[in-house]
């Protein structure tokens, strides 16, 4: 409680607390957005840590590739199974199952589910890593040498996670399509040629999906870095930073997904 709040009566104090927690998401969002220009400035400077970007991209990809494969394979299976049942019952025609599935996968589920996996696995890892650097005074040591912690730590992670998220989205969609095709073939006897059909997919779907993947690829590392940089003291501080990295990362993806969905819809994509 700050001194100003102490002067308020109990009712006002309650309101102030509610007000503060209502505003909190906006402060957090603002802080995360403000990291972006500071991380991008890091790109211009000399002695750019290419080795660190590669290391980060490798570890981010390595950490999530299995998770993405398993999740997207089961998403493909489940969606096609339920879609197939509906088509069988309502339409009696199985030919739209593949095209409809592919359309919604590329536009919505593929990027968003991959984004959520990256937020949990990679975002959590980044928040923990940077959080423990805060707690063990490594960030302070950087500041002592006038080395900007954002440029040193956030910039390489931003680039690495951006590239990894794009690649994982492509990979995840491929896995989901493959598992969907197999499911449709085994359960409903749909031939692969009729399943793998892009007739319902328009360029707008692909563009929307790509915009989402790109937005998550930028957002997740920034949110996780913010969480890590705001770590408190002690190992408890690292734990809290990790949790908040995952929570803020995943929530942000859900919000971004709706916002981008609405905006692309408004633009007729």
């Amino acid at each position: 409680m700050n001194p100003k709040q102490e002067q308020l009566g109990p009712n006002h104090r309650f309101l102030a607390a509610v007000g503060a927690s209502t505003m909190a998401p906006f402060w957090v969002a603002g802080a995360i957005v403000l990291l972006l220009p500071r991380a991008l400035v890091g790109l211009k400077e000399r002695g750019w840590p290419a080795r660190e970007v590669l290391r980060q991209a490798y570890s981010a990809g390595n950490r999530s590739v299995l998770l993405v494969a398993v999740t997207l394979a089961s998403v493909g299976m489940i969606l096609v199974y339920h879609g197939g049942l509906q088509a069988q019952r309502v339409l009696g025609d199985m030919s739209p199952v593949g095209p409809a599935f592919i359309q919604i996968l590329l536009r919505e589920f593929g990027p968003t589910i991959v984004g959520l996996m990256v937020a949990a696995r990679v975002g959590g890892g980044i928040a923990a890593e940077i959080g423990s650097m805060v707690v063990t005074e490594q960030i302070d040591a950087l500041r002592m040498n006038a080395a900007d912690p954002i440029r040193f730590l956030v910039t390489p992670r931003l680039i690495a996670v951006f590239l990894t998220t794009m690649a994982l989205t492509v990979f995840g969609c491929a896995v989901a399509v493959a598992s969907g095709a197999v499911t449709a073939n085994v359960l409903f006897g749909v031939p692969h040629q009729s399943f793998l059909n892009l007739s319902m997919t328009e360029p707008g779907d692909l563009i929307t999906g790509l915009i989402k993947a790109a937005a998550y690829g930028v957002y997740v590392p920034l949110a996780a870095s913010w969480a890590g940089l705001s770590a408190g003291i002690g190992s408890e501080g690292v734990g809290r930073a990790t949790t908040s990295g995952v929570v803020v990362g995943s929530l942000g993806i859900i919000v971004l997904s709706s916002v981008i969905g609405a905006v692309t819809f408004a633009f007729g994509l």
Binding site: E52, R55, M133, T136, E137, Q138, A141, A146
Partner: peptide, 20 residues
């Protein structure tokens, strides 16, 4: 502060080495 930090070294309680 950087001018001060140039003049004043600080050995942190944690070793605070960059782990990479």
């Amino acid at each position: 502060l950087f001018e001060i930090r140039k003049r004043c070294g600080f050995v942190f309680q944690h070793p605070a080495l960059l782990d990479f």
